[in-house]
Design a protein around this nucleic acid. Sequence first.
DNA 1: GATTCGTTTTGTCCTAGACAAATAGGACGT
DNA 2: ACGTCCTATTTGTCTAGGACAAAACGAATC
Lengths: 301, 301
Amino acid sequence: MNTPSFNIAAVERDTGLSKDVLRMWERRYGFPVPDRDSNGERCYPAEQVERLRLIKRLMDQGHRPGKLIATPAEELTALAPRRSARREPEPTAEAGELAELLALIKQHDAGAYQQAMQQRLARQGLQRFVQDTVAPLTRRVGEYWEDGNFEVFEEHLFTELTKRLLRQAIAALPGGQRGPRVLLTSVPEEQHVLGLLMVEALLALEGAECIPLGTQMPLLEIARAASAHRADIVALSFSVAFPVRQIPALLTQLRQIMPTETGLWVGGGGTARLTGQPGMTLLPTLDAALQALAAWRETQA
Amino acid sequence: MNTPSFNIAAVERDTGLSKDVLRMWERRYGFPVPDRDSNGERCYPAEQVERLRLIKRLMDQGHRPGKLIATPAEELTALAPRRSARREPEPTAEAGELAELLALIKQHDAGAYQQAMQQRLARQGLQRFVQDTVAPLTRRVGEYWEDGNFEVFEEHLFTELTKRLLRQAIAALPGGQRGPRVLLTSVPEEQHVLGLLMVEALLALEGAECIPLGTQMPLLEIARAASAHRADIVALSFSVAFPVRQIPALLTQLRQIMPTETGLWVGGGGTARLTGQPGMTLLPTLDAALQALAAWRETQA
DNA sequence: GATTCGTTTTGTCCTAGACAAATAGGACGT
DNA sequence: ACGTCCTATTTGTCTAGGACAAAACGAATC
């Protein structure tokens, strides 16, 4: 049995490194060095793909490719997250409970996780459930993933199950009639939806009329949707994984093509290090979203 | 106010045409011809982006780019779907009801749509709801979209609302304990999830243990997840929008890296024109999925 | 410790050529 | 009229190497 080999498109799919980057690294750093097929096209052995995935993960934690590629394989696996100005959460009873929930995911016990979360939802109520359970849990999952404690598919399982809980809870709420009409979505390439769902839950609780459009809307479509739905506000979410450098240009462009009277709210972990621009409201936290809602109602009153 | 202009990455995002294709068309057909900024980089005016979006839509319907680009703008908008070997559905009472549901989406009345669908679910029961309502509705939406009757954001709204209904219905089912353990997901680039949810609903109804991992899993992760969850079956979905040419290579590769004893079920509209390969089961229809389930149980008995 | 300023690193864009897979269209046979 | 084979065209993706701007670093300064 020959080890399967990947063409450059497959490697891009599986690692998230663009073809341009893969070729550039080969030229510059001498890694990866794929075999060539009869047409002279690159064939990456599984081993190199595995290394690339590891490198990508460490890069997402703030390491630089030049260094990583020069590092021998054994040291790579031992590398810790670099930009961890993260303070350890005190081991409160609360933190322990969250850890237990994540342990269920790690054991791949979907049923038990769902049940435990349902209980918390019932106990805390939707607002506190979102703010005190889902939000910190999501943050923890990000940290676990950074530390290499979660596999991709474990993160996916967590996301999928949690999405279901939130959607279910939102569906149980009465359709909001008083607040602003808020259109929730994300730009292409941004597929994370948990943040949007958390905001939707909070806004819906406050009686706002939420229009969920899912993720990955082309900018022009967002603008059209805003007009068609006569939305008061377009709310976008950027996860920490989204390349920060692209966000300002995206927002400026969207602002240009959107109706002037429609508000633009931008939130999610990816916006933490962003500076505000005219015509849009930054919502680095869930609380900020609630405040923005109150402020909007103020101006309308 | 100057019209906003798009760099090549933005056009790729908004049209779904790769940078390579955009440059190639420019070289070969003389369209699009973007302006250049001070660095000599392409700046596409909004007008050309709009035309590209239209061309892309017609291409998805089977037209060829060479012809489309040569066609003057006025004729483009009038072009009908080309591969429409589609027979008009007879105007039964049933078809009328489906049209009414879609009309609600077209009116952007999310609340009324949800309510109407809830009623149908209660009336038909989950199995018939999936097979007689959601499946034909999804097909209709695809046709509407092909015919230019649906905007992207209307399709998104439909998808999002319908996803919620299905997930809600699935959550209400007891956790399956007897059937095979089925891991449901899709490959990277494939973000359509409705098909997966329909299958999940049917399998869960039959008592199978479904593990939903969401969409867009790298192949290596699918293999890992299959091992970790000790899945009996991995079920993948390809929508009609997925480039058919890439599917066989993907499946072969996945089959190679997956545990031999794990089954591979492949379904969705994108697999209709696919020929089977050893080690995998094609499920062109929802019925086929139920048959495959029965067959699997047969072999285990 | 914080801020500024050069230097290095890094990703993305550019041109232009080659080739193989997919499709169209014609010729042929039934 | 319909299906099948074959050839020509169309089309997307890959290749190579060069250029440049933005981000990140690190050193010197306040």
